[in-house]
Write a protein that binds this DNA or RNA. Structure first.
Lengths: 140, 140
DNA sequence: ATTCATGTGACGATTATAGTTACAACGGTT
DNA sequence: AACCGTTGTAACTATAATCGTCACATGAAT
C-alpha cells in the first residue's frame, strides 16, 4: 500500500462526518484534500460501492451509511484496494518445482505472511473512523 | 509493499540455511527462484548491507550472519525496503491549511496509521526465519 | 593468466497511480 | 420544459517503481 487512497478516503469520510450539516461537493472536498475533484469522485465511488457512503448521481452531498464507530479502518482500507488485491505481501510465482525449496516456499511463505496480515487487519478493525473524527474535533 | 523482494529475500535466506554445506552461486539461486541472477545479487546486496548475510566479492557462497532463530521477518522486511521507506501507509501531503480538517488530518492519520503499522511490525518480529526453514524442512 | 563470481550501472518493458480533460446522465430550480 | 450545477466515468498523459536484461569492472582462486 503506497498510494494515497487510504489516507484520502479517511480524509473524505472525516469531512462528511464533521460537516454533516453541509452538502459537500466533490469540488469542495478536493479543495480540502488539495487534489482534483475527479480523484475525489473516484475514491468516493469506491467507498460507495463498498457501502460506506450514500451518494446520488447529480446531487451534491454524500453521507455516511452508518455511525462513525461502526466504520472501521479495515472497512476503508479494503474499500480502496484496487482489483481484488487481497494480499498485503506479494509472493513470487513459478519458483522452480525441481528444487525442494522452490517447490515448497510458496506455501511456507503464505503461512507466515498471512499471520502478519491478520495481525494488521485485526488492528485495523479495532480502529474506527470515530477515533479519527474525535481526534480531529478535539483539535478544532 | 507489492513487490516480490520480501518473498524472494526469504527464499534466498531459506536456501542459504537449508543448503549451508554447499556454496551457492547467484546463478543457482536464480534458478530456484526462477528469475535473473542479477535480481538475486541486488537483493543479496540489500541483505548484506543490512547485516543479515555475509558475502565476499568474487567468491560464491554467502552465509547467514547469525542463527535462523535470530533473524526475524521484520529484519528481512526492513532490509529490502527501498530508500528510507519507513511508512506502511502513505499520507497525502499539502492538505488545505485553511480547512480545519485539512489542517489537522495528517497528525490524526499518523496517529492511527502508526498504531496499525506497529501491530504488523510486532507480529513480523515475532516470526523468524527459523519458522520458515523448519516448515520447509518438514516438507522435504 | 585464466576463469568464474560478485557488485553495479544502465536501459527497456511493464505496471500502478495521480492528475487532467471531456462529456453523458441525473436532479433540482425556475 | 429548459437550465444549471453535480456526479459518474472514460480516456489520455506524466510520473514513478519494479523487474528483467546486458555489460563490465573488480575480486579470488587455481
Amino acid at each position: 500500500m503506497n498510494n494515497n487512497r487510504f489516507a484520502v478516503a479517511v480524509h473524505i469520510l472525516s469531512l462528511l462526518e464533521l460537516m454533516k450539516d453541509t452538502r459537500l461537493t466533490s469540488e469542495y472536498i478536493a479543495g480540502s484534500v488539495n487534489t482534483n475533484a475527479v480523484v475525489i469522485r473516484r475514491i468516493m465511488g469506491m467507498l460507495s460501492k463498498a457501502g460506506l457512503v450514500l451518494t446520488s448521481p447529480g446531487v451534491a452531498g454524500a453521507s455516511l451509511s452508518r455511525p462513525t464507530d461502526q466504520i472501521t479502518l479495515l472497512d476503508i482500507y479494503r474499500a480502496v484496494q484496487s482489483g481484488g488485491q487481497e494480499e498485503l505481501f506479494a509472493i513470487h510465482d513459478k519458483p522452480n518445482p525441481d528444487c525442494s525449496v522452490g517447490r515448497n516456499i510458496q506455501s511456507s511463505l503464505e503461512n507466515v505472511f498471512s499471520q502478519a496480515q491478520l495481525a494488521l487487519e485485526n488492528k485495523l478493525s479495532a480502529l474506527t473512523l470515530d477515533q479519527v473524527t474525535t481526534d480531529l474535533a478535539s483539535k478544532m
